[in-house]
């Protein structure tokens, strides 16, 4: 097959950038979208041109590195897949495909399609952990977890931190990412000791960088792990409850 790529090229963080058109022929329908870019880059290098910079790592949808806005959709038209799991057979022969980087104040462009997603790391650092004694792991059966709770926590923990939720959100809000990272711990018994301090710390940290939720639901539809916006509601509830709970630390001087 043959496709026309309309790719965002930007030399560095402070460059203005522009779209550039590339005609790519001899494309196999079984190629992934990233392999299309491998082919394009090989041809660019052969011609002595600068290859397109893009993030990728595992290429099996679990690392969260790939990040492309394809035809106005984060990770492309397929639901529940990352860019690496999108195959060329999903496009028509001769199609024109527009590819852009994630756009958000918190995700500055490094080069071409690569963005700096370390704002996510700041959110995790602020509360995405549990305090557990180091040393030999304790007997697992000491802490019973209902099956439904374990399943819900696992659904939230499926988040790979790719940033598609932020990219898809018209407000560049990181609610889905932050909610998933808070609630996979807050749902489980092991996450209870820091439950209230975690939600306040992580939400406040998130709000330093990202916009606010207007309940469009775009994040859920863009998420390669199809994480539900139900977790955002759980996060909102925990945050408001925490605000009032912490007022009740009776007798403590703040």
């Amino acid at each position: 097959m043959k496709v026309t790529l309309n790719v965002w090229r930007q030399g560095g963080p402070s460059d203005s950038g522009a779209f550039q058109i590339y005609e790519v022929d001899d494309v196999s329908p079984d190629m992934s979208f990233l392999e299309l870019f491998d082919v394009l880059n090989e041809r660019l290098i052969t011609k002595g041109e600068e290859p397109v910079a893009f993030d990728h790592d595992c290429r099996e949808g679990i690392c969260g590195s790939c990040s492309m806005m394809i035809n106005g959709r984060a990770h492309g038209p397929e639901r529940g897949t990352a860019t690496c799991q999108l195959h060329m057979r999903k496009f028509e022969d001769g199609a024109t495909i527009t590819v852009e980087p994630w756009r958000a104040a918190a995700f500055p462009i490094i080069k071409d399609l690569c963005v700096d997603r370390s704002a996510f790391d700041r959110i995790i650092e602020s509360g995405g952990y549990i305090t557990a004694p180091t040393g030999t792991a304790q007997e697992a059966n000491l802490t019973p977890v209902p099956k439904e709770v374990a399943d819900a926590a696992m659904d939230a923990a499926a988040c790979i931190g790719c940033g598609a939720c932020v990219a898809a959100c018209p407000n560049s809000a990181a609610q889905l990412f932050t909610a998933a990272k808070i609630e996979h711990l807050n749902l489980l018994p092991q996450g209870q000791p820091e439950r209230w301090s975690r939600v306040v710390a992580m939400v406040d940290e998130m709000e330093r960088f990202f916009g606010s939720c207007t309940n469009h639901g775009e994040c859920e539809s863009a998420c390669p792990k199809e994480i539900s916006i139900d977790f955002i509601a759980l996060m909102n509830r925990d945050y408001i409850r925490a605000q009032f709970k912490q007022r009740r630390l009776t007798g403590q001087k703040s």
Partner: peptide, 10 residues
């Protein structure tokens, strides 16, 4: 975004 957005859920 410089290209038109394709809203899926909003």
């Amino acid at each position: 975004y410089k290209s038109p957005r394709d809203y899926a859920a909003a």
